[in-house]
Amino acid sequence: MDFEFLSQTFVALLPGIPVTLELATLSLMLGAGLALAFAVVRVRRLRPLNWLVIGYVYVFRGTPLLVQLFIIYYGLAQFPEIRSSFAWTYLREPYWCALLALALNTAAYGSEILRGALLSVPRGQIMAAQACGMSGFLLFRRIVFPIALRQALPAYGNEFILMIKATSLASLVTLADVTGIAARIIAETYRPVEVFVAAGTIYLAISYGLILLVRVAETRLNPDRRDPAPVAGVGAARKEVTP
């Protein structure tokens, strides 16, 4: 391993980090918004939207992200109707295509995470809110969503990390993210090992930072779980009275 070349490569890859981070951040934000909407449709069983969302999740979880990216980037471009439409302003740019593919993909996974989290909100806590006169959006915003969010965070943190790594596929539609620059350096130097080691290190560092962030968020949102909670007298001796 040539360490001088390795450090040069590392420096050359740095300009790709903002592209990688921006793609990951924007797609996760967009995707989470969609995921929440989809999860609510699923939990509420709003027909016929429910069926559409089920189909959507099935397709986007059942096909590789790379295929989705290529269908959006190369596939949609085949249709003259799309090329002459307003959407082409965005779809002609690799950046927006990559962002769209990433966001749609994470929305499918995210909606399942959030659906599970929404379903796990204890029925009794919802009933207590209803008994206080809360319903509809107020009930969702104040009670259901905050509890579901705490439930979803560990799994969603995983999804964050998967998405950081998934952004590397954007290089295949010519974007100069960390992987895109890495591919270019390999093309010029024919030395893949050092370049991939440098790129891998960068992804590792980003992921590690993200893991820390998620951990901080978890601690913030669950102050009661900071150390083991003493639980006494709950349900230990439920009295059953029979005649």
């Binding site: 009794g124 806590q125 207590a128 008994a131 206080c132 006169g133 809360m134 509890i147 949102l221 009661d224």
Partner: peptide, 24 residues
């Protein structure tokens, strides 16, 4: 009228067997 029901529920206090305090 769901809104009327909410207003009425707001005037009835309920205490549950399992407490059902909001955990967050």
């Amino acid at each position: 009228d769901p809104r009327a029901m909410d207003q009425l529920r707001a005037r009835i206090g309920m205490v549950f067997q399992d407490f059902n305090l909001w955990s967050h």
